[in-house]
């Protein structure tokens, strides 16, 4: 799980945090509320998830409960790959 968290944090930092240091991102910070990712960014994130973890994300799974923080994403990926 910690490896997934690390991979996700790196992706978010490299691709969405243009003006912040990596340690400013909390694992429970909401991407939407903090303005880190907008709804088109979410689909970019989904493409990366599918490619990186070799999973398929259904449209019904495109909900903030699965995708809106580092920890939620890690739990979602862990569930899909277990």
């Amino acid at each position: 799980m910690s490896e997934i968290v690390t991979t996700i944090r790196k992706f978010i930092f490299d691709n969405f945090l243009f003006d912040a240091a990596e340690d400013e991102l909390g694992n429970d910070d909401s991407f939407l509320e903090q303005g880190i990712i907008d709804s088109t960014g979410v689909l970019e994130l989904v493409e990366w998830l599918e490619e990186t973890f070799n999973i398929s994300v259904d449209d019904e799974e495109l909900i903030p409960e699965n995708l809106d923080s580092v920890n939620r994403l890690a739990a979602y990926v862990a569930g899909k790959t277990s």
């Binding site: 088109t40 495109l62 909900i63």
Partner: peptide
Amino acid sequence: ALSPARSAEYARRF
């Protein structure tokens, strides 16, 4: 290609 409306839930919040 990246429609904000692909996910109804995200679209609603957006």
